[in-house]
């Protein structure tokens, strides 16, 4: 456990040392702020003190923001050979993947902390449903965890950052839209199955303040699957090359 934290700490420092963190947080806040407060059907037109518009926009900004964080995590280590350095230290493959995961999640938490002024501002406008807001933030965290593990998996199978970025967007698109769209064109149990696979179903219900154990299980298992696959890809070097 200690090794995971050491690695996560180092990765987080690298984010902040290399400006990646500042640029990405600025873009994330800029985009979600612009669409929440200034553009389109923004928060003032709803006639209700709610952060719902922000949560719907964060759904898409996180979708672009997270692959940009995860794309270099494993691919760059593979390309530069530092993976060998890391894995010959007392670290297992799983600990490496977990350390990277934790670093990305920490950065997301920091980015989300900067959106707390939105919450404070809206709570001045009118009576706000505090439970729904907490649940919405919880939903964003769960979704981020799932997207980070998908991103890490994409990053593990290539040593090219751009390929990793595009690949995690492609996988992400399936969970964010395509399963949802498909589930509408199928009826019966297959339609229900696709509906369950779609990330938007679960995210919407959590961000509305309805937390069901099914949603939590969905996010956690998607996250675990991504991390498990990333670790498997790393361990593949033991079998063939």
């Amino acid at each position: 456990m200690n090794e995971i934290l050491v690695l996560a700490h180092k990765e987080l420092r690298t984010f902040f040392d290399s400006l990646i963190a500042y640029i990405l947080i600025t873009i994330f806040l800029g985009m979600s702020g612009f669409f929440t407060w200034l553009f389109g059907s923004d928060i003032f037109f709803i006639g209700q003190a709610t952060l719902q518009p922000f949560f719907s926009i964060a759904y898409w900004t996180l979708f672009f923001f997270i692959p940009a964080l995860t794309m270099r995590m494993l691919s760059e280590e593979k390309r530069s050979g530092t993976l060998e350095l890391l894995l010959t230290k007392p670290l297992s493959d799983w600990q490496v993947v977990m350390g990277k995961f934790l670093a990305c999640l920490e950065l997301i938490v920091i980015a989300l902390l900067f959106t707390l002024p939105y919450y404070i501002t809206v709570s001045f406008i009118g009576p706000i449903d505090h439970g729904a807001v907490i649940s919405g933030y919880f939903g964003m965290l769960l979704m981020s965890a799932a997207l980070i593990s998908i991103g890490l998996f994409a990053s593990s199978i290539t040593n090219n950052q751009i390929v990793a970025f595009l690949l995690s967007l492609v996988i992400g698109v399936f969970f964010l839209i395509i399963f949802d769209v498909l589930s509408n064109s199928f009826t019966g149990s297959f339609g229900q199955f696709l509906n369950y696979l779609s990330l938007s179903t679960h995210y919407e219900s959590v961000s509305r303040g309805v937390i069901d154990s099914r949603n939590i299980i969905y996010f956690l298992s998607l996250g675990y699957l991504g991390l498990f696959l990333a670790e498997s890809v790393l361990s593949k070097r033991n079998i063939v090359e």
């Binding site: 690298t14 290399s18 530069s80 050979g81 530092t82 060998e84 350095l85 010959t88």
Partner: peptide, 9 residues
């Protein structure tokens, strides 16, 4: 290791 990989940043 061979080629001495390091975290350059």
């Amino acid at each position: 290791p061979e080629n001495n990989p390091l975290y350059l940043d």
